[in-house]
Design a protein around this nucleic acid. Sequence first.
DNA 1: CTGAAAGCGCTTACAG
DNA 2: CTGAAAGCGCTTACAG
Lengths: 342, 342
Amino acid sequence: MEALSRPAVTLDQVARAAGVSRATASRVFSGSHAVSEEARRSVDRAAHELRYVPNRAAKSLAAGRSESVGVVVPQPTSPHFLDPLFPRLLRAIGEELSANGLQMAVFAPQSDVDVDRLEQYLAGGHVDAVLMLNLPGFDALSVRLQARGIPVVFGGRPHGAPVSFVDIDNRGGGRTATEHLVEQGRRRIAHIAGPRQVVAVSERQQGFHDAMWSAGLRSDLVEQGELDRDGGELAMSRLLAREDQIEAVFCASDAMAAGAMWAAQVVGRRIPDDIAIMGFDDLPLAAVTRPSLSSVRQPVERMGHEMTRMLLAMSAPGAHPPQQVYVGPELVVRESTVGRSC
Amino acid sequence: MEALSRPAVTLDQVARAAGVSRATASRVFSGSHAVSEEARRSVDRAAHELRYVPNRAAKSLAAGRSESVGVVVPQPTSPHFLDPLFPRLLRAIGEELSANGLQMAVFAPQSDVDVDRLEQYLAGGHVDAVLMLNLPGFDALSVRLQARGIPVVFGGRPHGAPVSFVDIDNRGGGRTATEHLVEQGRRRIAHIAGPRQVVAVSERQQGFHDAMWSAGLRSDLVEQGELDRDGGELAMSRLLAREDQIEAVFCASDAMAAGAMWAAQVVGRRIPDDIAIMGFDDLPLAAVTRPSLSSVRQPVERMGHEMTRMLLAMSAPGAHPPQQVYVGPELVVRESTVGRSC
DNA sequence: CTGAAAGCGCTTACAG
DNA sequence: CTGAAAGCGCTTACAG
């Protein structure tokens, strides 16, 4: 691409117009205290009149930092981009960076070539630090960036790279969900699990077993299915065929829970009176089922805030061994698990 | 944020290791032809050994361009970000920029403060040109950027700012949809319109009237509703109550069309035999209704490509008066409009 | 509090 | 084809 067509106003011109040196003008913009009120005023006025905008490239080069942070996310049409949690996370990160006066720049590489170009870009001084989602291929990128001295923090656990990360405590979430059912007085509690390969989902199942074990209950009632509504419906039908005394079901996702609720209601079980149903994710749909669905909310906002704080801490001088932080999901109690009337 | 902790390898070091001058080394990386094979080889080797990554900030400063393009999009949790067309558009833009060797950086300002900071950033030499979606508040930003000599292209028509844009021809799309119904031999054709305030949607209605007028048909059968499924269902019920001879309905959205289809089927009308139904948007749901839904596909990919091409053209030296390009939607014929058996 | 000066890491006419 | 040199627009010790 060609250069900018219109010559930009430079610091030099502002300084001259204000009758001070370039150094003093620079100090005004960097918010330095060592400037007289008088100098500050005339520089501000000159800058305003000339519509001065500092050249960030020059600033980055001279200062050795850019005051901006790169955020590397999945390619736009991938399932991860469409995940409803993604916008919430991005927003939380944006807010936190903004509060610290940092510019957020988002990158969504779509090919290996894109990833290579991006590495050059991120390592090339355009960015002071990088946040990254734990997607395939990003492990290697994070290692290379760190080797160049650029702080990196992952959202979600990396596949093995020695990099700091913040992850959601899915196991704790599964435990929380199950404990809630136990506290409601339910004893015969089942779990509808998702596909075993999905790590986050199998961790929720671990949490289920943890809580059942702690409560001294048997956790033998487990059925698996796809994470969607149909998967939940089918699994619930199998559970009902297996065991007549089910008092509660914890489902690995809200969509599954909606399906399970339907399967139970179709055969005449009342929710929550006969069977309590618990979801996971706290999607919008949880509020509109009948009865409304108790769920576990992914603390995505806290995740974003933690990632940013961690990154800022890593930008301080000194050594920064990889850290890991887990944020705990929050219980959202609605109608499907409380108010047993029988 | 602090400066990078690890000192970066510089061009100077590479040049020295390769036994050439900095100028020659630079020429190697810029792909200049005026370099001997021998020099090229030794520079490449040295760069590889030292793991050299050029400092982009310095490059931007010296060359007056950054080889990257900013894309300004809605804030992550806004409805626009969640619009299914958005990822497709972003992806198309990313592909086209990538094909031209340009880095795409995405910005999603969340507040007025963010917009101000972003203006400084974009105007500060970090980016050569800017693509922007036609969202509230971006008109003013685009004008200020252009005043600084930065090429800007909008996706969607701006609210009045003198800026180049690419928009989807919704009116043409409405015409295309209606003409398709006429060509299928339908005469008594109705339209289910969306809210009048939604510009894109009222343009589709214009297209409906255009096509009916050209075909010499009366376009008196119009009902309005919300853009969702329920809106379509209600409007269809009203249409059926008003007029018994309806042969076809063009709906302003696929969701409405799904509702309309349902309302017609419930009272015993066969689709497409009795009534042909046409949607708009070509969402995934169009493929799974029974019968599958004919629709009009928004040419988002072409929009992204056009935007990028226009931007590249504007980056050439010389004057560039604002241009406007409309890309025409594409007819997608499925079962709901063809194969009338009676 | 202020200014002259060096320097950040690159590009690019210019002269050879 | 190559190198010495000027310059891009800023920051920041340093000396006053």
